[in-house]
Design a protein around this nucleic acid. Structure first.
Lengths: 200, 200
DNA sequence: ACCTGAACACCGTTCAAGT
DNA sequence: ACCTGAACACCGTTCAAGT
């Protein structure tokens, strides 16, 4: 017990510990000293793996973006890459925020300096936003979604689900009933809002 | 210069100073010591007027909610309390966030403990959310907006403009062109999304 | 009443030193 | 290479003391 810790993957353990602390006590309660203490290492051990506290938060955000991307992609493809898949993506986005509020707050809460928030890249297939743009283009080709610029439509769709997600995790809605109800209504109103007008 | 400062309204000056610091250097750069120093008072003078740092932030948020409510009410009434006024409210909301990002982040950034964020009160005429609910009810009576529960519709509308506002102030959009474009598209798609279906 | 200065318990971060 | 302990410069907050 007195020899040095040999974590198989100390950086990974530190990220997990950080998420756990944020989950339980809030972002303001996250301290590097606390992370080290709970992991049984010195309070400066973290600097061997991260440049500073912000770098640790960036790792949390990066993990969140990976998880979000995976779930959105899964929803879109297993939903049949059509109208149903699109609705599933919307629900999956909000679900992700509700299931992983700590990650979500770090990703979008503005506490990061030099954020890793992937800037909208319509051609990127590896990021969540790219998946959204591709989905919208597919729906436009199918004549389901109106012919606005896909990039702008994607920003709008993002804004809608992001807004619902923030309300859901900020305690404005009484979970879980209100969250489910608003999610359902939001996905439906979103669809009506961007659907193609009836063909002349 | 050595006698005690006699501010006409020290609490107000402190709130203004806090907003200015957040505006220039970010929320993380706000320190009570900095506020005191810039105002020429001791670093503990603040405790005569606020219970702690969180209380100062609550005052910033409260000021923001007052300003937002005023601008939304103005947009709704001077827009004729109809479809045009509703669109004006949406634009005013996003404009407020863009014009006062410091206030907006404190109001909704989750940095407050025991937030003063007014919980949705459909009957409250003094808060922004109440104004929104009343506006939606008026539009429903006019047959312009679909007959969903006003409370739920209001949450949806709030989510949409809140989402756009967050994207706008978080640097995702290139100001000002992208912000104007997305705002215009969002208000239009929002309208289509909640409008009443054509009468049979 | 209002403000001050010293003090306390906490941070993030750096760095020389240990294995 | 990886980790440690002491140290530094900063916080928020408390409190006895001044006017």
């Amino acid at each position: 017990m007195k020899v040095s810790y040999h974590h198989g993957d100390l950086p990974r353990a530190m990220v997990r510990q950080a998420v756990q602390i944020i989950q339980r006590d809030g972002l303001h309660a996250l301290t590097l000293r606390g992370v080290g203490e709970q992991l049984g290492v010195s309070r400066t051990a973290l600097y061997r793996h991260f440049t500073d506290k912000n770098d640790l938060l960036k790792a949390v955000a990066a993990e969140g973006f990976r998880m979000l991307q995976a779930e959105l992609h899964e929803a879109w493809t297993s939903g049949g890459e059509g109208r149903l898949g699109f609705a599933a993506m919307g629900r999956a986005y909000i679900q992700f925020a509700v299931n992983h509020p700590s990650h979500y707050r770090v990703m979008f809460g503005g506490s990061l300096r030099g954020s890793d928030m992937p800037t909208p890249d319509p051609d990127g297939t590896g990021d969540a936003f790219g998946t959204l743009v591709h989905a919208l283009e597919a729906l436009q080709r199918a004549g389901v979604v109106r012919d606005d610029p896909p990039m702008q439509l994607a920003l709008y769709v993002w804004a809608v689900v992001h807004g619902v997600a923030m309300l859901a995790i900020d305690g404005v809605l009484k979970p879980p009933a209100d969250i489910v109800a608003l999610t359902t209504l939001a996905i439906e109103r979103l669809r009506t809002g961007i659907e193609a007008p009836p063909a002349g």
